[in-house]
C-alpha cells in the first residue's frame, strides 16, 4: 500500500524504522535477526516501516533485500535509497527492481558521508543528489527514465523525502524542501525534533506547501545517548532540559521516562502535522505503548 493513499484518505500515518543487520537474514535456524524481531514487535501497530540504506555509511544488508523480506512477513516497507553508493544507472535500476519486487514506497535521501561509516576508504558516488533522485523517480512513475527513454512498464512508487526542522538557516532547508516538492516528493519525514516551539515555527512556514509531513522522533535512551546525538548525529539537537530530565531517573526507570517524554512531546507536535515517524534505535518494543498513550484518532 502506498503511503500517499493513506494520506489522501486523511489517515494520520504512523511509521517506524528498522536498520538491516550486518549479515544475512536467511532462515538457517538459530536466533531471529534483530531487524526482523524489531519489525515483529511493531506489526499491526503502525502503517509502514522505513528500512534504512547502509545507515551511517556502515555496510549492512541492503535496504531492498530487507524491505522484500519484511514485505513477505506482512509489513509495509518504505525502501530508503541514498545517493552515496550508486550512480544514476544503478539507482534507476533499483527503482525498477523495487517496484518489480512489490515495493510501494521509497524514501529518497542524499545519504551520510562515507567518512562517518566503517569503510572510510571507499569512493563516494554522489552522482546525483536527493532532489534529482526524486525528479528521476517521478519521471519513472510516468514511464520515462532520466534520459527520456520509454519504460516498458513504469514504476508505481510513492515518493518520500526528508527535511530537517532544526536546520539553521531554516530558509535554506525550506528552499531545499520546496525543490524536493517541485521534483516529485509526495510526503516528508522530518529529522528527530525535541523542541515543539522550533517545530511549530517550521510547520508554520511549510504548511502551505500542501504535502503531508510526519514528525520524526528518536526516543531518548539515556543522558549519554542524548549528548552523543547532539555531538555526533547530523541535524539533531536535544535540549539540555530533556537531558537533565533523563538524568533525573535511575537507570531502571529510563524506559518509562523515555516513553513519558515521547508521549508528552508528540502530544504537542503530532497535531501540527499528518503523521509520526519513529526512529526507535532498538527500542521498537516501546513504540506500541507510546502509540496507545497518544490515542491517535482522526
Amino acid at each position: 500500500m502506498k503511503l500517499t493513499e493513506l494520506f489522501d484518505k486523511g489517515e494520520f500515518v504512523v511509521s517506524s524504522e528498522v536498520g538491516p543487520v550486518k549479515g544475512c537474514v536467511r532462515d538457517v535456524g538459530g536466533e531471529e535477526p534483530v531487524c526482523l524481531k524489531e519489525a515483529r514487535e511493531l506489526k499491526g501497530k503502525i502503517h509502514a516501516l522505513n528500512v534504512t540504506d547502509n545507515q551511517s555509511a556502515v555496510m549492512r544488508l541492503g535496504s531492498l533485500a530487507a524491505s522484500i523480506k519484511l514485505k513477505a512477513e506482512g509489513h509495509e516497507p518504505i525502501f530508503q535509497m541514498t545517493c552515496r553508493d550508486r550512480n544514476r544507472i544503478a539507482l534507476q535500476s533499483d527503482l525498477l527492481n523495487a517496484c518489480s519486487l512489490g515495493i510501494d514506497n521509497v524514501l529518497c535521501l542524499t545519504g551520510d558521508h562515507i567518512a562517518l561509516g566503517d569503510h572510510k576508504q571507499a569512493k563516494a558516488v554522489f552522482d546525483i543528489d536527493s532532489v534529482q533522485l526524486l525528479h528521476i523517480a517521478k519521471n519513472m512513475n510516468e514511464g520515462k527514465d532520466m534520459m527520456g527513454n520509454e519504460l516498458s512498464q513504469p514504476t508505481n512508487l510513492a515518493l518520500g523525502a526528508v527535511v530537517n526542522p532544526n536546520a539553521d538557516p531554516l530558509d535554506l532547508q525550506i528552499f531545499k524542501m520546496e525543490s524536493k516538492i517541485a521534483a516529485g516528493a509526495q510526503f516528508f519525514q522530518t529529522q528527530a525534533i525535541y523542541d515543539p516551539a522550533v517545530f511549530e515555527k517550521f510547520v508554520k512556514r511549510v504548511e502551505g506547501f500542501g504535502v503531508p509531513i510526519q514528525v520524526g522522533f528518536v526516543m531518548l535512551k539515556s543522558p549519554a545517548m542524548a549528548k552523543f546525538m547532539n555531538n555526533n548525529v547530523s541535524g539533531i539537537s536535544v535540549p539540555e532540559s530533556l537531558i537533565e530530565e533523563m538524568a533525573s531517573v535511575p537507570k531502571g526507570g529510563r524506559k518509562e521516562k523515555s516513553v513519558e517524554i515521547t508521549v508528552r512531546l508528540l502530544k504537542e507536535m503530532a497535531p501540527m502535522v499528518q503523521g509520526i515517524h519513529f526512529m526507535p534505535l532498538g527500542w521498537s518494543n516501546l513504540v506500541p505503548s507510546v502509540i496507545e498513550q497518544l490515542d491517535l484518532k482522526n
Binding site: A115, V131, D168
Partner: peptide, 27 residues
C-alpha cells in the same frame, strides 16, 4: 563533501559540515 548542487544535506549543522565540524558547510 557530497558535491550537492541543490542545497545542503541533512548533515549541515551550525553552518558546519558533517564530515568535519571545523569545515564550513559550502551551502
Amino acid at each position: 563533501a557530497k558535491s550537492l548542487v541543490n542545497g545542503p544535506c541533512g548533515g549541515s549543522q551550525n553552518g558546519k559540515c558533517e564530515v568535519d565540524p571545523n569545515r564550513d558547510c559550502a551551502w
